[in-house]
Design a protein around this nucleic acid. Sequence first.
DNA 1: CTAACTTTGTGAACTAATTCACAAGCCCCG
DNA 2: CGGGGCTTGTGAATTAGTTCACAAAGTTAG
Lengths: 209, 209
Amino acid sequence: MRRIAESTVRRLSIYLSFLEEIEAEGVLTTSSDDLARLGGTTSAQVRKDLSFFGSFGKRGLGYSVPELASALREILGLGRQWKVCIIGAGKIGAALARYAGFAERGFNVIGLYDSDPSKIGNKSGSLTIRDTKHLEDDIHAGKYDIGVITVPAENAQAIVDRIVKSGLKAILSFADAQLSVPDDVELRTVNMAMELEALTFALTNRAAR
Amino acid sequence: MRRIAESTVRRLSIYLSFLEEIEAEGVLTTSSDDLARLGGTTSAQVRKDLSFFGSFGKRGLGYSVPELASALREILGLGRQWKVCIIGAGKIGAALARYAGFAERGFNVIGLYDSDPSKIGNKSGSLTIRDTKHLEDDIHAGKYDIGVITVPAENAQAIVDRIVKSGLKAILSFADAQLSVPDDVELRTVNMAMELEALTFALTNRAAR
DNA sequence: CTAACTTTGTGAACTAATTCACAAGCCCCG
DNA sequence: CGGGGCTTGTGAATTAGTTCACAAAGTTAG
């Protein structure tokens, strides 16, 4: 399989969320044009994106909503349950731990860690906060597929190094820090400062656009 | 000015955060090579990114850390304070409202809204939760530059429509929904589902990469 | 002052991503 | 059952973004 662009994967997510929405409404077929209108792209782009993975539509007719949704779930790896741990039981970590949207998509948050002794043992929702010193053992035991990092920026790289060393291959970081991981580990960073700066850049340079 | 790529703006943020880090350590000069190593890019990319905005270095020597940091702050629109409101005082909204990282960068969260009568009037940190029915008036009064949306996905578009109509030009959304805004409004979306799906896509298709 | 050494800034070359445009396939109607 | 009308799937063309490669400009040492 050819290397798939990140932008393509992002759009597949968008298509899928739209498909699930209309699937729930009982809509049976849709078209690349419909998908494009919602996703803010073009119908050619939609078809090109899908074409990397196969051929899912019927010419003259469009796509079967349930079939395409199911195919996209498979492509995106949503055909199974994923075990997630959150490291950092601060405000954001706790908010994420209780975020229902995760479970709906097959992401089961089954571990929450912190290094602050005053937090360890406390409950956050249904989870008991564990000491980060157990992280290595828990990861080795295959407890988790994905780690979510919500520790302060200055501790983030150290935690990442530890969990990478223990064999975790996918990390989502909310730390305002530039992290580095080996090539075989997938890292995504949600950096609020960066998003806000993209906004202020646009506001400041509006005249130029 | 030529249209600046989003990827360039993102990298400028990364360069700036590195510069501020070493500025605090008292480092006086740096090079495109240093900036590249940290940002996970190449020195040519760094120089190209900067070249869209002018010429900031000295050949043979590199860049003055304070000067380049200051130039980047100016370019990114961080040379001033920004007034931010958060709409949706749920878990995530409340966590963001108290997030110290915002203020450090000149983003002052001075308004927090919710439509739930049981929340209105409550305090979250130093902010009192206001009824969303005041949003239009407050925006018209010029209270805010940027709106952060943390309402449930199903209400997000309605809120966006209201604040756009009231004249707000920059929105950061955390709702798991595809939102649409007019061309002259800048919208960024942080979609957790999408980030996780990018991870599971990578995990599922690892062999192919 | 000159030569050796660095590092920037930037056209040119290259690579990646998007859009175009149209043949191919399928449905429906008469 | 054949023709008109749609919509897909996909090479080709275009546009956008990255990397190369080197002249220009500055620094340092002798």
